[in-house]
Design a protein around this nucleic acid. Sequence first.
DNA 1: CATCAGGGCCCTG
DNA 2: CAGGGCCCTGAT
Length: 326
Amino acid sequence: MKKAHTLHLVARKVVVPSVPFDFDSTFHKPDHFTSGDNYWEPGIRWQTCLWRGKTLGVKFENKGTRRKPKMAISLYAESKVGTTFADSLVSEMRYRYNLDLDLRGFYKIFKDDKILGPVIKRWKGMRPGHPSSLYEYLIIGIVLQNATVRRSIQMFKALLEHYGTPLKFDGKELRCFWKPGALGAVSEQILRDLKMGYRAKSIKKTDEYFGKKLVDEERIRGEGREAQMEQLLELYGVGPATVWYLLFDVFHHWDFFNHVSPWEQKIYSKLFFNKNPEHPVSVKKLLKYFERFGAYKQLAVHYIWEDLWWKRTHEHIPWLEKEIRV
DNA sequence: CATCAGGGCCCTG
DNA sequence: CAGGGCCCTGAT
């Protein structure tokens, strides 16, 4: 087993997110299952981050309130980092967690909506977002494919345990993602032995492609949705389901909703139509229903989705347990 | 015990 | 452009 690298506090920055801001629902998504690269408790999130080739520990702390947001970002590294580096990391986090997102338009339209209104009230200030780079998200997306939650977690943990770097910082020991290309010496068979199944090929190809720096995430961010979609679909192992996740989580499109996977279909059917999983509402009908949320349809469903998962953290929901199979 | 579908995608015909 | 095959796992 690899020995953990000990990191030291090298920078600390204060960040003021846009108003309103809810720290916990932004930095902890109960449906993003724990995998050993992050840890959350109310008011604090620890995570690892591979940024510009460095393996880092990052700690986010809530130092404000919904209406007067303020937070601290502490950076832990093996050796000193420059101001430019620290600033670039903070700016990346602002992007990934949507800390500057203006939600006022969304709230204004839907604050009195029968379904969304109460949810908005509960989660006012929650941002969508995802901690991963495009490469990292693709690996996660691949292990999500055609697998139940439990199996996906098992696959991701196996990868992180074998190829991730253990980091020790601020009393936590968490694993950091490997560099794109790091799986070059790992054969497809080895990945199969880690029970990746046929996904092994996609993981290999993705790693090889990103290792050669054939994808410029920054550049793709600057492009329009259609162009982004086209390029993402060209990647081996990426189809409609994965692209739909990517466009929301990595590229922050709130208005795009064209795909519903089978388990989500069952959950939406219950949530929006009170239909049991044995008789789910058709995908077509669900998509049509989401049209009511207009330019915010994906964001709206995210709010309702997260509301459900938070509910699950303090309440047993039998029909949901049956669907997710953690 | 055997069989089968699943948070999809690729590839073949 | 429809559908078979794929890894593994848990449900039946």
